[in-house]
């Protein structure tokens, strides 16, 4: 089973029970507005927020747990990792605090503990402990309107398409998270355009890690190639110089000989 969450924004009443449950279960602290906030309600202490979007629609925001996550590809020490069970987690004992994961994430999800002297990267963990124990995340459990539900990704996708088919006027014909950047575990269906959850552009279908593949795979070749080219040039130039010097010496010798 691929754990996933389907959020149906047409059902969300904006009650924010999911966010409250997330804070309680993950023992997060109450947060206040900070200078460094993104403005979407997420922070190192808020892993789930409810964005009051256009047209009286509420959209809950959380980590998308991408199937091929950019943050994992970026992390130089492998602290950010995708667990076999599905959730993308940060192993704080490895993290060096470079914040490359925050730069790489196309949804701008990971947040930093800027006020701490020993800061860590924090974000939704898809309630790893709970789903490993066979349960469901706190947020989906808490939702009184069943607007956000937990289940197997394939089943939820089928369910999402079923809802759209049954109610074409209510939904835009798109499941957000089905295929963008290689697909995500957190899916949305909605009556409004949800591009504002990203950097405002429609994502391609390629997983972002593929963008670095070519460059990274050329690394050994660039290294060896450059080394070989330099070595070869050195050999050629060295030899040419030596031959020239020998020739010059020979000529000098040849010139001197008759004088003898």
């Amino acid at each position: 089973m691929k754990p996933a969450i389907l959020t149906d924004t047409t059902k969300c009443t904006g009650c924010s029970e999911c966010a409250i449950a997330c804070q309680r279960v993950n023992r997060l602290e109450r947060d206040i507005p900070r200078r460094w906030d993104f403005g979407d309600g997420l922070s190192a202490e808020n892993w789930c927020s409810v964005v009051d979007a256009a047209d009286n629609t509420f959209v809950r925001k959380q980590c998308r747990h991408c199937l091929d996550p950019a943050c994992v590809d970026a992390c130089p020490v492998g602290a950010m990792h995708k667990t076999a069970a599905g959730p993308v987690l940060c192993d704080t004992s490895k993290c060096i605090g470079c914040r490359y994961c925050m730069m790489a994430c196309p949804f701008g999800i990971p947040r930093y503990e800027w006020s701490n002297v020993v800061p860590y990267v924090r974000k939704c963990v898809l309630c790893y402990d709970r789903i490993k124990a066979g349960g469901q995340p706190a947020c989906t459990e808490a939702c009184p309107a069943k607007a956000t539900i937990f289940g197997d990704r394939d089943e939820l996708l089928a369910e999402a398409h079923r809802r759209i088919r049954r109610n074409p006027g209510k939904y835009l014909d798109r499941v957000w998270g089905e295929s963008e950047v290689g697909g995500t575990s957190v899916l949305y269906i909605s009556g409004i355009d949800l591009s504002f959850l990203t950097y405002g552009e429609h994502f391609g279908k390629e997983p972002l890690p593929q963008t670095t593949t070519l460059a990274m795979e050329s690394v050994p070749f660039a290294f060896l190639g450059m080394g070989a080219a330099m070595g070869g040039l050195y050999w050629i130039i060295e030899r040419r110089n030596r031959l020239q010097a020998e020739k010059a010496a020979g000529e000098a010798k040849g010139q001197r000989e008759p004088e003898k």
Binding site: G14, S16, I20, D31, I32, P33, G41
Partner: peptide, 26 residues
């Protein structure tokens, strides 16, 4: 029904301003 205890100063900076009002929790 509208949990919009928003901080205008924050979302003024945001290009997603109309869509991304801050909810202070909880």
């Amino acid at each position: 029904g509208r949990l919009n205890f928003s901080d205008t100063r924050h979302y003024l900076y945001s290009p997603h301003a109309p869509a991304g009002r801050l909810v202070i929790l909880p």
